[in-house]
Design a protein around this nucleic acid. Structure first.
Length: 686
DNA sequence: GTTAGGG
DNA sequence: CCCTAAC
């Protein structure tokens, strides 16, 4: 699932979906595909900016065109995490989407733009000036010129996954050609770089696109005077996009970091203001002068102080990126923890957990709930501290006065399965603590995902909306339960859950712990795995990392088993419920978990040797893509390291070698390839 | 983001 | 496997 990965990006730290990159030049610089990715990211920046602006408004509305009207309820959604409630645009009437922020919507906000899966048309957010531009592009308006549109709109067309894949395959020229279908006179021969000064492009969102963005607290307070109209029109440029009746006068432009995509956010505002924010004095746009030129501004100019308090987007992106290929994020995490204790807030925890394979759990169960509810901090569960024996989860129905129909849940804590720790009586207390800690973190880090129970029945279809699943209904909501499930308890450590080529039949997730939102239901029930993990190992089938790709479709539900974490502490086995792992104030640096060791199998070594023989040393990214593309747990750094150890192993005597023996034939090839490529490198240097 | 190298 | 410097 491509969109699982997200980048934390932008001045204010919003998240955008992660976009995989295709193979590129060895050093990865100057690639046009890189630019395309940046374009796409930029589009999300723009979207985030728009969403951020929405949050500064007392009231924001968006008019929608006929083509999008039927999907009006899903166009833009804004969620606040810290406040534990959500906001979204909702239909006010047939033509308008309205957004009324909560009075205290001033903290961290998650803003997402979602398009219903049944939305056949693209949707773009636009403001009036760009409406003019678009009309110009279509030859129907002589008013303004916005510059050419680069080719990024395609990113949001069609199915996200497939389109992204497609983009990885096609060359920029081809993409432009596709764009020129939308803008017949544009883009066919323009270099992307020419578009740097272009104004904002429409944001096209495909049917399934979901831009999830985090926008930080706005220094600019909401202004009751502000009324913004945002047009949401069909993405088809042949469609009438003049759903807004008022000529917009405010052109909010952004300092493009790079070229601008075919995404364009435009604002329609007859009366725009920024709440009198003092931060806009030199960069903000003003709303009173209808004739003024667009004033470039950036988030930086708007939120300079805040930004200075934060880690850089680059670092935050790393922190957020669960991508196992990001191998150098741990140092940053530690830096973060050391330098900025405040950042170990809810989102800091989220970031850390993102790096520990809990992303899906969060995305499914945690992120919307108490983890982010700062207002819950003072309402510590009365039963959550009693020896950690119980957890606290409370389902809350949205207040009746709420305008939105969002489901509000408060999960105060998740409990990990109880762990049975076997440790010698001579062990120290410290080692006992460490053992328990390792067990807990191991289980949390790799082995769990979140399941949902509603009225005792498991909600299995992840694609259904809460509405469709009945989770939005108040009475049912009280029977909503979450459970932590192991992804699998039956695979040996050498098998990787992240490896799409590995799928194990018969690895039925077993509930380790569950708890209901029903107050009377107690802390939840647990089921003990009938088989200790170790005894189940024999049931698992080891697969080479590069085999059986056809099985990947079976394991699309992120339930790919990963039991390695459960096995990481051999003396620990599963037992019923135990402790509360995620108290908000119990986050400690030691929670930063080391990746679980996964020794290379012989087949992996063989694949590595083969790849290095072909590609040489020093092209580890290519080696990764070539031979380990499906093995997400093997980063190119891992491969480099493994090669290093292989060379070392090959040089030492067999008696000195440890671990699974590597056939001598392979080691000979290692030495040969090492010698060959070393020689090649010398030749190049000379 | 990648690569190289020390730990 | 982690971490960092360098690019």
């Amino acid at each position: 699932m491509v969109l699982q990965k997200r980048l934390d990006y932008g001045f204010s730290g919003y998240q955008v979906p992660w976009v995989p990159r295709a193979s590129r030049s060895p050093r990865g610089r100057g690639s046009s595909k890189k630019k395309l990715e940046d374009d796409r990211i930029y589009a999300f920046e723009v979207l985030a900016s728009l969403a951020g602006k929405l949050l500064q408004e007392r009231e924001t509305s968006a008019s929608i065109s006929d083509a999008s009207r039927k999907n009006q309820h899903t166009v833009v959604k804004c969620e606040t995490h810290d406040k534990g409630h959500q906001i979204k645009l909702e239909p006010r009437d047939e033509n308008t989407l309205a957004y009324v922020p909560h009075a205290n919507d001033d903290l961290s906000l998650k803003i997402s733009s979602t398009i219903n899966s049944d939305l056949p048309e693209n949707v773009c957010f636009s403001d009036k000036l760009d409406v003019d531009c678009r009309q110009k592009a279509r030859g129907s308006s002589p008013s303004k010129v916005a510059g050419d549109f680069p080719c990024c709109g395609i990113f949001f067309e069609g199915n996200v996954d497939s389109v992204i894949e497609k983009n990885l395959e096609v060359e920029p020229q081809e993409i432009r050609g596709m764009v020129s279908k939308t803008h017949p006179k544009k883009g066919s021969s323009k270099d992307l770089g020419e578009l740097d000064r272009a104004t904002l492009a429409p944001v096209h969102l495909d049917n399934n696109a979901k831009a999830s963005l985090f926008s930080d607290h706005m220094n600019c307070g909401p202004s009751p005077r502000c009324q913004e109209n945002m047009e949401v029109v069909s993405g088809d440029d042949d469609e009438n996009s003049s759903g807004c009746s008022q000529p917009g006068t405010i052109m909010k432009t952004y300092t493009p970091r790079r070229h601008i995509g075919n995404q364009r956010i435009r604002k329609l505002s007859a009366s725009r203001c920024w709440g009198g924010t003092p931060n806009l004095k030199d960069g903000g746009f003003l709303n009173t002068d209808r004739k003024r030129k667009p004033v470039y501004w950036t988030w930086k100019t708007c939120y300079p102080r805040r930004r200075s308090q934060r880690i850089s987007p680059f670092k935050r992106r790393k922190l957020l990126d669960q991508n196992p290929e990001s191998t150098s994020d741990r140092g940053l995490r530690r830096k973060l923890l050391d330098q900025n204790p405040e950042s170990t807030s809810d989102r800091g925890l989220r970031r850390k957990l993102h790096n520990q394979n809990l992303e899906s759990a969060f995305d499914r169960g945690f992120s919307c709930a108490g983890m982010y509810n700062s207002h819950n901090k003072g309402k510590k569960s009365e039963n959550s501290s009693a020896g950690g024996a119980s957890s606290s989860v409370a389902g809350q129905q949205a207040p009746s006065h709420s305008r939105d129909c969002n489901v509000k849940l408060s999960i105060k804590s998740f409990r990990v399965p109880e762990l049975f720790v076997e440790i010698p009586a001579t062990a120290t207390v410290g080692s006992l603590k460490r053992t328990v800690m390792e067990a807990v973190t191991a289980v949390l880090g790799g082995g769990l995902h979140v399941g949902i129970l509603l009225q005792g029945k498991k909600v299995g279809d992840d694609s259904k909306t809460l509405l469709q699943s009945g989770i939005s209904q108040g009475d049912k909501l009280r029977t909503l339960g979450f459970m932590l499930e192991p992804r699998c308890t039956q695979i040996p450590p050498s098998l990787c859950a992240e490896d799409p080529a590995v799928f194990l039949h018969g690895c039925t997730p077993q509930h380790l712990t569950s708890f209901s939102t029903t107050p009377t239901s107690g802390p939840g029930t647990s089921k003990i795995s009938p088989d200790p993990p170790v005894t189940n190992l024999s049931k698992c089938v080891q697969r080479n990392h590069d085999t059986a790709p056809s099985h990947t479709d079976i394991s699309t539900d992120k339930t790919i088993p990963e039991s390695r974490a459960l096995l990481a502490v051999p003396s620990v086995s599963l037992k019923p419920l135990a402790m509360v792992p995620f108290h908000q104030k119990s986050r400690r640096p030691e929670f930063v978990q080391r990746r679980i060791r996964r020794p290379f199998s012989v087949s992996e070594v063989e694949a590595l040797v083969q790849a290095v023989e072909n590609l040489g040393t020093g092209r580890w990214r290519d080696v990764k893509l070539c031979a380990f593309d499906g093995a997400k747990h093997r980063t190119y750094v891992d491969l480099k390291d493994k090669w290093k150890t292989l060379v070392h192993t090959a040089k030492i005597s067999p008696q000195q070698r440890r671990g699974e023996p590597v056939p001598q034939e392979l080691l000979d090839r290692v030495l040969a390839a090492h010698a060959y490529w070393s020689q090649q490198q010398v030749k190049v240097e000379v």
